[in-house]
Amino acid sequence: MKKIVWLVLLGSMMMAAVAAAATFRVVTEEATIRKDRKFFAPVVTRVPYGEVLQEQARKGDWLMVNYKGRQGWIHISTVQEQKFDWSSLSGGRAAEATRDEVALAGKGFTPEVEKSFRNKNPKMRYDLVTQVESYRLSEGQVENFIRAGNLREPGGEP
């Protein structure tokens, strides 16, 4: 009898995981929600790293999401699919463990480790890295470059 109870429990856990597979977390420093499914479509809003978004629809490499009441399309490469939040099934200790997992994902090689590495290696040219990262082109510049060179605008309709 107990065997059946455990198997039912296991089965329902797996089904819940499948049903709740439409949650995504932003994995870029900042992600952009756009009006249409195109790289240069007008920006609806921007979403910071780590925010969680629910998928409302999917077409090709684009997901329709809603962030703080603003709806639009986000490119799949700016997000990562999240697993089901198991803590909701048990609460207490497991909820704590889940938070730990989230924290762990941001642990490892972090700004704190970089700071410590820089203190240890003061000759590293982080100033030049910052200079390189500051080369920024606007989307308009890239779009003009593509058009002027008779190149193809990427990421449109699949």
């Binding site: 994995v27 870029t28 420093e29 992600a31 790289f39 790293y49 490119h75 490469s77 700016t78 990262e133 082109l137 510049q141 890239v142 470059f145 593509i146 060179g149 190149l151 193809r152 990427p154 990421g155």
Partner: peptide, 17 residues
């Protein structure tokens, strides 16, 4: 400009930084 154009056509148009 060349790099950003190619990146948008790559398998990973956006990366963290």
């Amino acid at each position: 400009s060349i790099g950003r154009t190619i990146a948008l056509s790559s398998d990973k148009p956006y990366i963290y930084g």
